[in-house]
Design a binder for these strands. Structure first.
Lengths: 252, 252
DNA sequence: CGATGTATTGACATTGATCAATTGGGGTGG
DNA sequence: CCACCCCAATTGATCAATGTCAATACATCG
């Protein structure tokens, strides 16, 4: 398991763009920062690439930084004593990872990319310093943490005693919604995770996921080949999902 | 739905005691506070009693304060558009409620006592002020928020594709563990919630919960009448639960 | 003491898990 | 470039766990 390779040089222009869509850009780009300050910013954050199999951090690791997905996707998971695994979340670009480490200075979960991914590292020490300079940032930080509860609540809601097809439909819906927040095409999704991982996340058997995806395809709700998914009939999808979920993650 | 009745006068001595076990006593009892400062403290927090049916706050309510259960127990839940309900957590004395409201200045869930309960109200404005006076408190506050992720992760883990009996066993185990943290008898629990609520929390049918409780009783693992539960064979309980859960909530 | 709601227990139905076999891709080496 | 291999995904057949429906027992409260 090799080390993540540091990107020695990167395009500030592109960074500025990608940061604009970031869920926590308040942390790195306080309104006071501009121009040359972006250089200072480049000093604050570290950008690394990770491949599947490399862990961004592991359960029990000392908490040192928060991470934001820049490109690709990352899964977080917890393991149980008996070797069981539960995936907690799939993180898309702009989404934050690592907050659960704040509590005990150790990470409570493991973060690992689903595909080659770029991740933005925000050393917590520096965030704290920055927050001391800019008091309003403290409030922001708290709000950002609080925001993460949405995700867990959605997950719990999704797992909560609904039929399998609803869970799957809900999942696809939230994925679509999150892509829309990134101003990307929300009808064409990429399921970067394996069926096994998706099944685990939804608390289903992989075979069930396969079958239900096939079913949704037969119903003309979506079209998929491999990991590319096109939502053909969004209304129907929402209908099947039970129109259940309050979709309010990461409101900008 | 009548208003919660204010306790006009209360016993500071008892308050001091109950606060000592509180999961967030760092917020109200910074080490610098002592003696007369406790009076100031009494100004900060409000103590209210709520009965079942009264809501402490509702989804969508403007976020103004955090709450800590002092006595009794409180459930938090979210509702879905189609009228579905999902219980997120049962809060015991010393546990915190309302953090999810920080993000958007509106509560994301509803909080309601399961039985007549006393709740401690921490106006957020005042917490912020206090935090300005004591910088270390800011860090504490963040850690407290982060700690709440444990609970959600536990919940997700509990729901995650395990057999019903494991979920139930895990739930009882965590309840027991939380009572122990309060230095109370952890072998005699009170299931203050109804079977319906418990089933909802575990994503099971109420009948299943009933049957499995009966089964655990037949197995000699526990003894229960109505809502009083005695754990007879803790080892067996842990064994049934799969010895799964990392029990690390609210470490003091 | 009766009424109402909650919990339990039973019979049955159904969803989704499990087991097993097959297909299909992507990568590797000849 | 093709052939093979390996892992992931799909599909099928079966079964078990748990949900659903229905009836009864139990408590609590007026």
């Amino acid at each position: 398991m090799n080390q993540p390779h540091r990107k020695p040089d990167f395009d500030i222009q592109q960074l500025r763009l990608s940061c604009r869509e970031c869920s926590v850009h308040e942390l790195c780009l306080p309104s006071s920062l501009r121009g040359d300050d972006l250089i200072r910013l480049s000093d604050l954050v570290g950008h690394s690439s990770y491949d599947p199999g490399q862990h961004i951090f592991n359960t029990g690791d000392v908490f040192q930084a928060l991470y934001v997905v820049q490109s690709g996707s990352v899964k977080t998971s917890v393991t149980t004593r008996d070797g069981g695994l539960q995936i907690l979340h799939f993180h898309l670009p702009g989404e934050l990872i690592g907050l659960d480490g704040l509590a005990e200075h150790h990470h409570q979960c493991t973060a690992e990319p689903l595909e080659p991914s770029q991740v933005c590292r925000l050393p917590y020490r520096k965030i704290e310093q920055l927050a001391n300079d800019i008091p309003a940032l403290q409030k922001q930080l708290l709000r950002i943490v609080s925001r993460e509860f949405f995700l867990d609540h959605q997950h719990i809601l999704m797992m909560g005693g609904r039929p399998a097809i609803q869970r799957l439909a809900l999942f696809i819906q939230t994925l679509s919604h999150r892509k829309r927040l990134l101003h990307e095409d929300h009808r064409n999704l990429t399921l970067s995770m394996s069926r096994v991982e998706l099944a685990n996340y939804l608390a289903l058997a992989t075979e069930t996921v396969s079958r239900l995806l096939a079913r949704l395809q037969r119903l003309g709700v979506l079209r998929l080949e491999r990991h590319n998914l096109e939502i053909v009939d969004m209304e129907r999808l929402v209908e099947i999902s039970g129109d259940d979920l309050e979709l309010v993650p990461y409101p900008h």
